[in-house]
């Protein structure tokens, strides 16, 4: 049949429809699995020796402060009569008698304080409290800060202006003043709330501790909010946000599903760096005597008590001072490592 010279019809061979040969298939084989965001980040993190060492240190400190006290033969508030102010690894007269009688007495590894409480377990409990404050306060800060920052940037305009001026004002007031005022102000309402049966748990955790959580949460979310806002301002112009809006997604869904999930790198880094600064502030507050209530210890209050007897019992200072420096140092180093791994743009 003669073809029209103007036709677009092609000449097909039956060979063109044969199954592909092995050789041809090879070009389509995926050589390497696609790397997800998390895998990529963790691969880079694993290469960073300093960050991995600090991660191990953090895990060891967590085991020591959360698990070891459960099996420890002494408790943090138990006062042992007759063994006040013992040096590290020393025994009191009574305990020596018991050892002579064939009994086993667990040594006071770090000695005892002036009320005869085993210092090693107190330091462990202290670091538990410090870590708890760091982690929980940072969790609350993460939630408030990221939502506030995202909402402010997403709606923009006047909303953004008003919301950011509030942030600026919180920034300018000296934070120590706010902390002290708020922790005094919160004490009475929390105490009365603790009297209500449904809120009994407040007494278990301690009014002071909860007021510290709230104060930190109310104060320190501003940094996080600024960080998230600057990210969202950039992200909200992306095509996928426009696409989501065209598909009829609600504002809440866009913020939750698209904007915040894309800030995850910044969020991880800011959170990890917020933890040591919360611990730092808590220890400072405890040092002022505004932190957790006695007999609950925190590393700051232990150090602050130890200063009064510095001349006679210097060893009481070293353990909490060292531990708090170690915790803050390793969280800082881990945060730096995470920043390099998950947010290479931020790298200096």
């Amino acid at each position: 049949m003669k073809k029209n010279p103007l036709t677009l019809q092609r000449n097909w061979n039956p060979d063109d429809f044969l199954p592909a040969s092995e050789e041809e298939k090879e070009s389509l084989v995926i050589m390497r699995e696609s790397v997800s965001f998390w895998k990529d980040g963790f691969r880079r993190l694993k290469k960073n020796k300093v960050a991995m060492v600090s991660l191990v240190v953090i895990i060891v400190i967590m085991i020591i402060s959360f698990i070891v006290p459960m099996f420890y033969p002494y408790t943090y508030e138990q006062q042992i009569r007759g063994s006040e102010n013992l040096r590290p690894m020393a025994y009191s007269v009574k305990e020596l008698e018991r050892i002579d009688a064939g009994e086993k007495v667990f040594p006071h590894i770090l000695g005892t304080d002036k009320l005869g409480r085993d210092y090693a377990v107190r330091v462990m409990m202290g670091s538990r409290i410090s870590l708890l404050v760091g982690l929980i306060a940072t969790g609350i800060i993460l939630i408030i800060g990221s939502v506030y920052g995202a909402v402010s940037a997403f709606f923009g305009g006047k909303t953004d202006m008003v919301m950011m001026r509030i942030v600026d004002i919180i920034y300018t007031i000296p934070d120590i003043l706010l902390i002290v005022l708020l922790s005094f102000a919160l004490k009475a309402p929390l105490n009365s709330l603790a009297a209500v049966p449904a809120f009994k748990w407040i007494q278990v955790v301690g009014v002071n501790l909860i007021s510290i959580f709230i104060v930190f949460a109310l104060l320190y979310w501003v940094g996080m909010a600024r960080m998230v806002r600057s990210q969202v301002l950039m992200l909200k112009e992306s095509e996928y946000v426009t696409a989501a809006r065209a598909l009829g997604a609600s504002n809440a869904r866009i913020i939750r599903k698209h904007l915040l999930t894309n800030c995850i790198g910044t969020l991880i880094v800011t959170t990890t760096l917020q933890i040591p600064s919360s611990i730092f502030t808590e220890s400072f507050l405890s040092f002022l005597g505004l932190g957790v209530a006695v007999p609950l210890p925190s590393l700051g209050s232990l150090a602050s008590t130890a200063i009064n007897g510095l001349n006679t019992y210097p060893y009481l200072l070293f353990a909490p001072a060292l531990l708090i420096s170690l915790i803050i140092l390793s969280f800082n180093l881990l945060g730096d490592g995470l920043r390099d791994a998950f947010d290479p743009k931020l790298k200096h």
Partner: peptide, 8 residues
């Protein structure tokens, strides 16, 4: 220097 609190 950044990690060690001033009171320490």
């Amino acid at each position: 220097g950044i990690a060690v609190p001033s009171f320490v």
